[in-house]
Each structure stands twice: as structure tokens, then as C-alpha cells.
Design a protein around this nucleic acid. Structure first.
Length: 560
RNA sequence: CGGGAUGUAGCUCAGCUUGGUAGAGUACUUGAUUUGGGAUCAAGGUGUCACAGGUUCGAAUCCUGCCAUCCCGACCA
């Protein structure tokens, strides 16, 4: 690409409406441009990067024996009605009507259509296993798009679906995809961690996420350095390091706590430790009032609650819902409540603790488990710093991640919904076992930039960069420099080496800065010493500048 | 969906309190001088002040409504 005659621009100022390093750099360097919240254009450089990522994934998909197809984005709503996911996705699915008023959707994910396609193929157990995949645009009406390409409403996903006769077959197919994912992300040079996760709206037996390590990640990952345990916070079992002392029980007592509505204020006012308090979360679970009690130091885990109560929607309860329960917001305690009460395992081990008195301005102290009435007791909180590995008992580590890939053992959920069956050896009809596997391409791009940039711009890994080399002409008025640079450019192209020629009539500083901003891995500078047959060679990720004879350059480049 | 902020030149923003012909930097055009880390000088073009109403002799500025963008929450594969 010769810059002078190409669509190429960079911005000098940070983008006003980008809230992540990767989003800002990709916009500033002219890779992408926002059209509306959560919707981006892929400009020439951006599309090249996406295509590189796509090519790496495609290589390992094919190697694993999967076949590429392309499903439509425009899909009759009935497919999602039949699987029950029209409700499951709720407002997140884009809905529209055709001219005859027929309900259509823009596909958010494609389990239904792949199962439908498989119906034409599968008659007998002899027709399996097989695996289909596609690179295709997904539409999800996210409540809140953010972080550049990390959370968007329209994005390209590689999704694959495996079909097997039984669970054993699914295990084999799953392992193949799992390994292909590892190879793909390894080749891209991403620092990632694989964690167990919630199956969520996909359903099924197992979900594992490929999480790129990044501080702005929206998921909290926990792992253990001493064994292979790793998990998304949302599903991790809590194992506390410190047990509560079994103190001699003291008589229950009501104390005045004026203007102390948060548990921190109460603990401070009464001069007690936060760990000796119990706090209440007054929630609306599918329209029913449920009050949860957990240790004052903990956070409620909504994924665990959702599973425990088999609920679809959980939010804070409004005042109307609370009225008949006897609870008083800010002073809510587990004694004398008139509604469904769920307590965390830990509460039963505590003694002489402090909690709300259900009376404005008052709390109870010396409360013990036998003082409270509850309906359910379970693990309903998040693990936190200091907790132990559920597998080996060593202290857990915490980090943040961006979910770039996810693999699911779906089991027979969708084959049942779509009536996808086969005849087994005994000519009995059986459900097909499915797996589904996704990678977000834009999100992967964003994760790479999050992990690999400096104050000057992006630093692409060699095999992801839109172009591997950039040739800078220091002075376009100098005919020798122009001639040498153009000859170099032609020579690289003739050898199928992709490069950019910066032949713009700009000052050197502009060219250096742009080359660094767009993150091309290797820079070749044609300047003063060109007349002596010497050019400069500099990798983006180091400060060393090397002088190279022009006749040796091709060899050097081919060695990289 | 709740709370908050913002919307003025391609980009980043000032002006709004106290109404009176639209501003800066950067980018762009032309010329000159420059030319190894975002040049200098001179001349020049650039706007439905998000949109719609209202108040007023007069509105970017005041009032009402509405849309969009962003942040925090809620929600989320």
C-alpha cells in the first residue's frame, strides 16, 4: 500500500467518546470508526487485521476437520420461538418484520439454524460425527455497549457446532475444538486463561471461557498457582480461609444506630468488625420478594442465586414489594421477616453477630443462627481475595479478563427443541449431542491491542499486523530516496512481503509518529545515507536502530 | 430502565452565568522558507451552534420538549 494514493488517516487527538485504550488507539490510528453506539466500520487497516485473525482461526478449524458454511443473519423468528430462546434473549434480540408482517430477527447466535441444517444430514448414527463452522455477523442489542470493540451490538463471530451420537462422541469433538482454540490464541500471542463458566442462556452441561488477561476486562477470573483450578468468579465455589470462632452465646439485644444505613457505617458506629456483621439484600426475583443475608464483607453472586432459585430476572426490590414483609430498608435483619429468606452458608457458622432490627434506626447484636427463620441456605456469595482453592486449599489468585472465546457442551438441549434425532444400532430413535464454540473477532482484536501497546500507539504481533513492514521516505523531494524506496517496495511486493510505503509529502516527525501509532512491526527508513546504499531498520518493540546495506535488506527481511 | 454529564468547524474544545452579526488550536487550500521526531510566515475557505417549539425587537446563550453520545449502576454469550 502506497499511502499517498490510499484511504489512510490518523487523528492527532484522543477520541472523545472512547473509554478504552484499545478503542481509542484503533479509532485514532484509523482502523475503525464508530457509526453509532456499539456499531463500528472496519476501515482498510482494521479489516486486514480482522482477516488475519480470521485466517489463523480458519486454519485450525479446518485442521480439526470442521467444514465452513455461511448461515443467514436474517432469520424467521419461529426458529427462536421453537427453542424458547425468543424469551431467553428478551430485549437483546433485534426484531423486525418483513412486508407481509412476518416476524424476523437478526441472528444473535445460530444453534437453531445449525440444528435445522443438521436435520437434512442426520438419519443414522453412521452420519456422525461432523462439525460445521462459519464467520458471521451477530446482532445483539446490548443494554450498554462499551470499551470500543469489546462490547458491541454488531460483530463478527466464528461459531462452530459439533454433532455426535452420544456424550462420549461429544467429549471427543469438544476436545478437538478446545485444542484448536488453544492453538489459535497461542499463535496470536495472546496472554489468556481458560476458566470454567456459567452456561447461561446457551444451557447445556459445560462452559469454558478463553479469557484474555486485561485490567479493563469485565469478568473476574480466579485461579490457583498450585493446581490447575481456574474459574469465572460467577460460578466459583467459596472456600473461606478463616473459620468463625465458636463463641459462647450472648443474649440478643437491640441497640440504637441512628443514621447508619450501610453495614460499614453500623460496624464503625458500634466499633465491631465487618466480618461479625450480616447484611441484607432485598431483591426482586421474577416479581417475588426474596431477602438474602450474607456476611458483611461479602458480595451477593447473582449467577448462583439465579441457578438456586431457577430464576430469569433478578433486581433490587422497590418499596411496594417490601411493604408486607416487615423489612425496613437500611435496617433489614433476618429476625421476624415475613417473606422468602435465603441465607449464605457462612451465616450459620457465625455467632453473636450484628444485623438490622427491621426498625428504623436500630440494629440487633448478639444474634445467633437459631434466632433467624429462613427458607434456604446455600453458597450465594462471590469468592474474594484471601479465599482458598476449592481443589487444593491453597490461596486463590484474582485477575480480570476479556472473554474472547467460549466453548459449550450443549448436550441434547437444542436437538430436543428442534427434534433432531437419529436411529441407533438397534433402530431406536435417539437425540443428537451437540457442542457449540464461539470466538469474537473484534473482541480478539481489542484484546490484542489492550495487551500490546505503549504511549505512542499499537504494537502488533508480526502475524496480526495489517502490514509487517513500513518504508518511510524521509524527504520526498530527494529523488534518490524516492527511487530507492520505490524499488525496495516493488522488490518486497514481488516477493509477496506485505508492506506500506509512506510516500506522503510529510515531515519526518509525522511519518515516524504515524508508523508508531498504527503499530507496524518493522520500520525501514530511507534517509540521508540512502545515497551510500544504506537504510535503517527498526523493530516497533525495541529502541535499537540498525543500519543495513540495501542489497542485504531482502535477506534480512526474509529471515524474520 | 434509574442516576449524572455532554452535544458549537473534519478533530479537540472555548463562548452560555449577565441575550446583540460565530471563536481558538489543529486539520484543509495557495505561496514562500524549511526538511531525521507532529515546522515557520503570509493569505484564504470552512458552521442548519443536535433537533423542534416557545419567550424576545433580537436566542448558541433563557424556557419547554425531544434525539444522540458518554459515564456510574441495572442487565449481559
Amino acid at each position: 500500500m502506497k499511502l499517498k494514493e490510499s484511504f489512510f488517516y490518523t487523528l492527532r487527538e484522543d477520541a472523545r467518546d472512547e473509554d478504552s485504550a484499545s478503542g481509542n488507539l484503533l479509532v485514532k490510528a484509523g482502523y475503525i470508526k464508530k457509526t453509532s453506539a456499539g456499531v463500528y466500520m472496519m476501515l482498510p487497516l482494521g479489516l486486514r487485521v480482522q482477516n488475519k485473525i480470521e485466517a489463523i482461526i480458519r486454519k485450525y478449524m479446518n485442521e480439526a476437520g470442521a467444514q465452513e458454511v455461511k448461515m443467514p443473519s436474517l432469520i424467521a423468528a419461529e426458529y427462536y420461538e421453537n427453542s424458547g430462546r425468543m424469551k431467553g434473549f428478551g430485549p437483546s434480540i433485534f426484531k423486525l418484520k418483513d412486508r407481509t408482517d412476518k416476524d424476523m430477527v437478526l441472528g444473535p447466535t445460530h444453534e437453531e439454524l445449525f440444528a435445522y441444517a443438521a436435520k437434512s444430514m442426520i438419519r443414522s448414527y453412521k452420519n456422525m460425527p461432523f462439525n460445521l463452522y462459519q464467520f458471521q455477523t451477530k446482532f445483539r442489542d446490548e443494554p450498554r455497549a462499551r470499551f470500543g470493540l469489546v462490547r458491541v451490538k454488531e460483530f463478527v463471530m466464528k461459531d462452530a457446532y459439533s454433532f455426535d451420537a452420544d456424550e462420549k462422541g461429544l467429549d471427543v469433538s469438544y476436545k478437538k475444538m478446545f485444542d484448536a482454540y488453544k492453538k489459535s490464541f497461542d499463535e496470536m500471542g495472546i496472554d489468556y486463561r481458560i476458566v470454567k463458566a456459567d452456561t447461561g442462556i446457551m444451557g447445556g452441561l459445560l462452559s469454558e471461557e478463553f479469557q484474555a488477561i486485561a485490567p479493563l476486562g469485565e469478568d473476574t477470573l480466579i485461579y490457583c498457582d498450585d493446581c490447575d483450578f481456574s474459574s469465572n468468579l460467577e460460578v466459583a465455589k467459596v472456600v473461606r480461609a478463616k473459620k468463625h470462632e465458636n463463641k459462647e452465646k450472648l443474649p440478643l439485644q437491640e441497640v440504637e444506630t441512628p443514621n447508619c444505613e450501610s453495614i460499614e457505617e453500623v460496624a464503625k458506629y458500634l466499633n465491631i468488625k465487618l466480618e461479625d456483621t450480616v447484611k441484607a439484600l432485598i431483591m426482586n426475583v421474577d416479581g417475588e420478594l426474596v431477602i438474602f443475608f450474607i456476611n458483611g464483607e461479602r458480595e451477593l453472586n447473582e449467577t448462583k442465586v439465579q441457578k438456586l432459585l431457577n430464576a430469569t430476572e433478578i433486581g433490587f426490590a422497590n418499596d411496594e414489594l417490601i411493604v408486607s414483609s416487615n423489612a425496613v430498608a437500611g435496617y433489614c435483619g433476618p429476625v421476624g421477616l415475613n417473606c422468602k429468606v435465603v441465607i449464605d452458608n457462612e451465616v450459620l457458622e457465625m455467632s453473636n453477630f450484628c444485623c438490622g432490627a427491621n426498625k428504623k434506626g436500630y440494629h440487633l447484636i448478639n444474634v445467633n443462627p437459631e434466632d433467624i427463620k429462613y427458607d434456604l441456605v446455600a453458597d450465594i456469595v462471590n469468592a474474594k481475595e484471601g479465599d482458598l482453592c476449592p481443589q487444593c486449599g491453597k490461596p486463590l489468585k484474582f485477575t480480570k479478563g476479556i472473554e474472547i472465546g467460549n466453548t459449550f457442551k450443549l448436550g441434547t438441549k437444542y436437538s430436543k427443541a428442534m427434534n433432531l434425532q437419529y436411529s441407533d444400532v438397534d433402530n431406536k430413535l435417539q437425540d443428537v449431542w451437540m457442542g457449540s464454540y464461539g470466538i469474537g473477532l473484534g473482541r480478539t482484536m481489542a484484546a490484542i491491542v489492550e495487551q500490546s501497546h505503549d504511549e505512542k500507539g499499537i504494537i502488533w504481533p508480526d502475524n496480526i499486523a495489517p502490514y509487517k513492514f513500513i518504508i518511510l521516505i524521509m524527504s520526498t523531494k530527494d529523488e534518490t530516496q524516492c527511487k530507492i524506496a520505490n524499488e525496495l517496495y516493488d522488490k518486497l511486493n514481488a516477493n509477496n512481503i506485505e508492506c506500506i510505503l509512506d510516500d506522503r509529502d510529510e515531515r519526518p516527525g509525522v511519518k515516524f509518529n504515524d508508523a508508531e501509532l498504527i503499530g507496524i512491526p518493522y520500520r525501514i527508513t530511507v534517509g540521508k545515507k540512502a545515497t551510500e546504499g544504506i537504510v535503517e531498520f527498526k523493530p516497533r518493540n525495541s529502541d535499537t536502530v540498525e543500519e543495513v546495506k540495501i542489497e542485504d535488506l531482502l535477506e534480512k527481511i526474509q529471515g524474520i
